[in-house]
């Protein structure tokens, strides 16, 4: 595993060192082959940057090391010595093959994800297990004790991500900005977002024709708390709903409540699943 920047920079160096060697040599056809490999190295670097961004490249350290070895060889070689230049080309080929193999395996995995994505979405947001569990400890991603169903349980972090409506959390500040202090407009936005949350989770938690209604409820409550933590209930039109608490203090309280709620919801979902084995 190496960061994409390391791999990309190694192949940029390879491209440049091959180009420099091509300029130094008067051998043919090695000059053309070096320029061709430089173009290939650059193209692979570009694909790698586009695919991995700032992330990590699985197996990238090996490819980067191979590219660096080829670059060093290109820098040190006698440019007029055919065997030596051929060896540099072979080293560059090894490096390019390594990165190309990583990219093609990643791309085929990505294609598979896209192909299966549509059918995988139905039920993908569900946290509670679709079938009765046969026992074992309560927990997230608990080891094999609970059987296959328990093994398929999402981790705690994934549960939080599924139960907290991220799409609504990012949409609400936008709604706030566009409603420009109008309580009515903001209310309309809130209703639309709530409908969206419920619809998305209805299909996202659908298993055997039944949605996980507790999980939908949890997502709705999470969103309502989130509104509070962004002072969404304190529209200045005609005064605040309550006078004994300032908007800032209430945002703080809602913020704490949201944090506590988000921390606890995976356990609540787990408990409801335990109580009703079919996850309803």
């Amino acid at each position: 595993m190496a960061s994409a920047d390391i791999v990309v920079n190694a192949f940029i160096r390879l491209r440049d060192s091959l180009t420099t060697l091509a300029a130094r040599t008067s051998l043919n056809p090695q000059k053309s082959i070096l320029l061709h490999r430089a173009m290939i190295a650059g193209s692979l670097a570009e694909q790698c940057a586009a695919r991995f961004g700032n992330g990590d490249v699985p197996g990238g350290d090996r490819a980067a090391a191979a590219a660096d070895a080829a670059s060093t060889a290109a820098g040190n070689v006698d440019a007029q010595e055919a065997t030596a230049v051929d060896a540099v080309i072979a080293a560059a080929d090894t490096a390019c093959d390594a990165l190309s193999a990583i990219l093609s395996s990643v791309f085929s995995a990505a294609r598979r994800v896209v192909r299966e994505g549509a059918s995988n979405f139905v039920g993908s947001l569900r946290v509670s297990p679709p079938v009765p569990r046969t026992g074992g400890p309560v927990g997230f991603g608990a080891p094999a004790v609970g059987g296959a169903a328990a093994q398929a349980q999402p981790t705690y972090a994934v549960s939080v991500a599924k139960l907290f409506p991220v799409e609504a959390a990012t949409a609400f500040p936008l709604a706030q900005a566009y409603s420009e202090g109008s309580g009515f407009t903001l209310l309309l936005f809130i209703i639309v977002i709530l409908v969206f949350i419920v619809a998305l989770r209805y299909f996202g938690t659908l298993k055997d024709g039944k949605p996980a209604k507790y999980e939908i409820g949890i997502a709705v409550i999470s969103f309502l708390l989130w509104i509070g933590s962004l002072k969404g209930y304190w529209i200045k039109e005609g005064g605040h709903p309550v006078d004994w608490i300032t908007p800032d203090a209430s945002a703080g309280l809602f913020g704490i409540a949201t944090i506590m709620w988000v921390a606890l919801v995976p356990y609540i979902a787990e408990a409801t699943a335990e109580k009703e084995p079919d996850g309803q």
Partner: peptide, 9 residues
């Protein structure tokens, strides 16, 4: 730089 490399080749 890749454009330059492509053009040169």
């Amino acid at each position: 730089a890749n454009s330059a490399s492509r053009l040169l080749f």
